[in-house]
C-alpha cells in the first residue's frame, strides 16, 4: 500500500479494537514525516542527502528514456501500434499544448515540452507504486521545473523583445489608460516575477503531496481498523470498516492517476503559456 511501509513497520500492533488482554492505542494518522524518508547517505550540509526521492528520480529518468527510445525505434512510413502511440504523443504535445498557446512559432519548444511532460508524468506516477512516493511530492523537483521555465521565459523574452522591452511589456501592459498603471504595475510585477513561478511549482507539488497523503490515510486507516486479534464480533465489524477504507483507497487511487496526468498537462500547458508571453510583445 502507498502508506510508507516503514511507518507500518514502526507500529505493527496498533489497531482500532485492542487484542484480548492488551491495552488499546490511538490512531496515528500518517504525518508529514512520511515525506522525509531516512537518507542512505546523509551528512551533506543543507540537504537530506541521498534518499528514496533520488532513487525514484533515477527510475523516472530511466523510464522516460526507455519510453522515448522505444517510441523512436525503427520508425517506418506505415506505423505500427507502438509507433502510432508515439506519434500520437508528439502530436498531442503539439496540438494540445504548444500550438494553442504559442502557435506555429512555438514548434521549436515541442521537444522541451515533451521532455517536461514525460518526466513529470513518470515522476508523479512513481507515487502509485505501493510504499513509494511521487517524486514531485518533494518541493525541490517542482521548484526545479518552475525555476527552469521562469529563467527560460526571461531569457527568451529578453532575446525577443530586448532586456528592458520585455520587462516593460510585462509590468506596463500596453493599451491601457495612464492612471490605471498605478494599480496594474505593482500587481503585474508581483504576479509575473513572484507569484507565477512560485504557484507554478507549488501547484504541482501540492497536488502530489495532498494526493499521496490522502492515499496514505486511507491505506493506514484500513490497516488500523483491521483488528483481527480482537473479540470475534468486533473483529467482524473491523473487517467491514477496513473494507470501506480499501474501497475508498481504490477509488482515490484511480482518481489520483487522473490527477497526476492532469497536473502534468497543466504544468506543461502553463509553461508554454508563460513562454508565449515572452515570444509575443503585446497581448
Amino acid at each position: 500500500m502507498s502508506a510508507d511501509a516503514r511507518i507500518l513497520a514502526a507500529e505493527p500492533g496498533c489497531h482500532l479494537f485492542p487484542a484480548q488482554g492488551e491495552a488499546g492505542c490511538g490512531f496515528e494518522a500518517p504525518s508529514i514525516g512520511m515525506f522525509f524518508p531516512e537518507p542512505w547517505l546523509g551528512g551533506i550540509p543543507g540537504s537530506d542527502g541521498i534518499d528514496l526521492y533520488l532513487v525514484l528520480l533515477v527510475v523516472a529518468l530511466g523510464a522516460s528514456l526507455l519510453l522515448w527510445s522505444w517510441f523512436s525505434k525503427k520508425l517506418s512510413l506505415v506505423p505500427g501500434r507502438r509507433q502510432g502511440v508515439g506519434e500520437m504523443f508528439v502530436l498531442f504535445i503539439r496540438d494540445q499544448i504548444t500550438r494553442p498557446t504559442m502557435g506555429a512559432k512555438g514548434d521549436k519548444f515541442i521537444p522541451l515540452m515533451t521532455a517536461i511532460f514525460t518526466l513529470i508524468v513518470f515522476m508523479n506516477i512513481s507515487g502509485l507504486i505501493p510504499g513509494m512516493l511521487p517524486v514531485n511530492s518533494d518541493l525541490s523537483f517542482p521548484a526545479m521545473f518552475a525555476l527552469f521555465i521562469f529563467v527560460l521565459t526571461l531569457v527568451v523574452g529578453m532575446r525577443q523583445q530586448g532586456g528592458w522591452g520585455y520587462i516593460r511589456n510585462q509590468i506596463f501592459p500596453p493599451g491601457m489608460p495612464k492612471p490605471i498603471y498605478v494599480l496594474v504595475t505593482p500587481i503585474e510585477t508581483l504576479s509575473v516575477f513572484i507569484i507565477r513561478p512560485v504557484t507554478h511549482a507549488l501547484r504541482l507539488f501540492a497536488t502530489m503531496f495532498a494526493g499521496s497523503l490522502l492515499l496514505a490515510v486511507f491505506a493506514y486507516g484500513g490497516w488500523y481498523m483491521l483488528s483481527i486479534g480482537a473479540e470475534p464480533a468486533l473483529a467482524a465489524v473491523s473487517v467491514l470498516f477496513s473494507g470501506a477504507a480499501v474501497i475508498g483507497y481504490i477509488l482515490f487511487f484511480v482518481f489520483e492517476i487522473l490527477i497526476m496526468l492532469v497536473q502534468a498537462f497543466i504544468f506543461t500547458l502553463l509553461a508554454s503559456l508563460y513562454l508565449n508571453q515572452s515570444l509575443e510583445a503585446a497581448h
Partner: peptide, 25 residues
C-alpha cells in the same frame, strides 16, 4: 475561437488558483 479561449481560461485559472496555493503555503 477555441485556441485563444483555452489560453485565456488557463491564464485565469492559474491566477485564481494562485490564491489557493498561497493559502496552502
Amino acid at each position: 475561437a477555441r485556441g485563444p479561449l483555452q489560453t485565456n481560461i488557463f491564464l485565469g485559472f492559474a491566477l485564481i488558483e494562485a490564491l489557493a496555493i498561497l493559502g496552502f503555503v
